[in-house]
């Protein structure tokens, strides 16, 4: 009896999108020439609206760079107009920029620490929120309520100032303590994201992995989380940006991050015009904005990678099949 295996056609025809490259090039060019930013942004949007197939990653990258440059352009323009009245330039001195950029490494360091802790907490607590045991569920809920309810600035003060004295721990690394505070904060929100995402995975997937006899951990690791990723990443990107914004608070407990060095610069020019200080903080805002957009782009690329795992490859030609199969009779013998 012969099988009616439908003869699968080859790979879908490759569609050329010359504009994709153009958007990317325009986006990259807008870094030295910000005026091109709006063009890349606009074209990228047009293209993205029209289709949702391959090369989205490049489009999104080009468009995002274009967008960032447009916004910077706008900020600078606005600044020039405002400060023209006060009679001020909008740039800081090179030395001040160097200080700020050096300090931004500390900010990035804190962000990485708190992100790492936040992700671990999110996963552990998010999964614990769905546990079968009432006490584990309750403890996880209590953590989430605490982490989301407390103000991150107060938590930073408690962690960096009160806890070392209370527990007699040496106040060795304020960076670490502050990062723990931010990580707890992120964990509370992240746990809810992960819980929602796990619930969004269809029940049949769990049943299928059970029928393959995967252990609960394997189920989570190989089946549920990879699929939850598409739901997790967009809000997790926003959350990471929120945490990046939160890192500015660590300056208040004396960590030398961007904000702290900005304050140092401000104190150096104590007798300068107040307008200079506005300029200083505007530059700091721009620096944070750039950092936030870097995080944004990284998450977009990550999302792209996850999406790719759903796309799959093309069909194999007989030559590409392994030898022991190529020579066997194809299809089901009947």
């Amino acid at each position: 009896m012969s099988m009616n295996v439908p003869s699968d056609t080859g790979a879908p025809p490759e569609i050329e999108h010359p504009r994709t490259k153009l958007v990317l090039v325009l986006g990259l060019l807008s870094i030295p020439i910000p005026l091109l930013g709006p063009v890349a942004w606009w074209m990228g949007n047009q293209e993205l609206r029209q289709r949702d197939d391959d090369d989205r990653g490049q489009l999104v990258l080009g468009r995002t760079i274009g967008m960032v440059m447009s916004i910077l352009l706008l900020v600078v323009l606005g600044l020039l107009v405002t400060l023209a009245a006060v009679g001020q330039g909008w740039l800081l001195t090179g030395g001040q920029y160097r200080t700020l950029i050096k300090a931004s490494l500390v900010t990035i360091q804190i962000l990485i620490y708190s992100f790492a802790l936040g992700i671990v907490l999110s996963l552990v607590v998010g999964v614990a929120r769905l546990s079968d045991h009432r006490w584990i569920r309750g403890a996880a809920l209590a953590f989430v309520e605490f982490a989301r309810g407390i103000s991150s600035i107060i938590l930073i003060f408690i962690m960096a100032v009160a806890i070392p004295i209370l527990l007699d721990v040496p106040q060795a690394s304020k960076i670490l303590l502050a990062a723990i505070a931010l990580g707890i904060n992120m964990g509370g929100y992240g746990a809810e994201i992960i819980r929602g995402a796990i619930l969004s995975v269809p029940k049949g997937q769990v049943e299928a992995s059970l029928s393959l006899n995967l252990t609960p951990t394997q189920r989570l690791r190989h089946v549920i989380l990879p699929q939850a990723m598409t739901v997790i990443l967009p809000p997790m990107g926003n959350l990471t940006i929120e945490i990046l914004k939160g890192t500015a608070l660590v300056s208040l407990v004396g960590v030398a991050d961007i904000m702290q060095s900005a304050n140092n610069i401000r104190q150096e020019q104590l007798f300068a015009q107040e307008g200079t200080k506005a300029v200083l903080f505007l530059n700091v805002l721009v620096l944070y904005f750039i950092l936030a957009q870097i995080v944004n782009v990284l998450f977009k690329l990550w999302e792209r990678r996850v999406e790719k795992s759903y796309e799959g490859g093309r069909t194999l030609t007989p030559d590409e099949l392994p030898a022991h199969i190529r020579h066997a009779t194809p299809g089901v013998t009947g």
Binding site: T315, L316, L321, P322, H324
Partner: peptide, 27 residues
């Protein structure tokens, strides 16, 4: 991977080894 390919061949789908479910028909 070897046994996997053999099984796929048995159900007549060796050529679809690298495709994801989204690309396959219901059957």
């Amino acid at each position: 991977s070897d046994t996997g390919m053999e099984l796929l061949n048995k159900v007549g789908l060796a050529h679809a080894a690298n495709q994801t479910p989204g690309q396959l028909s219901g059957g």
